[in-house]
């Protein structure tokens, strides 16, 4: 019954981060890209909490600096999704498709 080494969490977080990046590069639908961005943000969150749990904070540091950053990242991700879906709906209302490539009126 021994602990899980830190590197395991980091590798899992990096794998999810890379999959999220792959999703962003490959998907054409705006909402699918938004989902991939959520995956990347969650991967960064796991990284932060893993580092927090495996380190003893110095006297100067706050004992919960990791979870605090994670909570603020969750609020930012949520605000981003709300605004993102709003923008997508606005674009959709004007141009009847959520496909990112089709928005070529701004090409070049």
């Amino acid at each position: 019954m021994h602990d899980i080494p830190l590197t395991w969490f980091l590798i899992f977080a990096s794998a999810c981060f890379v999959i999220g990046l792959l999703g962003v590069l490959v998907r054409r639908n705006a909402i699918a890209v938004l989902m991939a961005i959520e995956i990347m943000l969650n991967a960064a969150n796991i990284n932060i909490i893993a580092f927090w749990r495996y380190s003893v904070p110095g006297p100067e540091e706050s004992p919960v600096s990791g979870p605090m950053l994670a909570i603020f990242v969750i609020t930012i991700a949520a605000a981003e999704v709300a605004v993102g879906i709003g923008l997508i709906l606005l674009c959709y209302r004007r141009r009847a498709s959520a496909d990112v490539d089709q928005y070529d009126s701004l090409s070049g």
Binding site: M40, L41, A44, N47, I48, P57, G58, S65, L69
Partner: peptide, 19 residues
């Protein structure tokens, strides 16, 4: 996308420096 990449960079920095 770039703020997600930026955050991952910050998390690595947080890991390296601890503060």
């Amino acid at each position: 996308v770039s703020s997600a990449l930026f955050l991952f960079g910050l998390s690595l920095l947080y890991g390296l420096a601890g503060t």
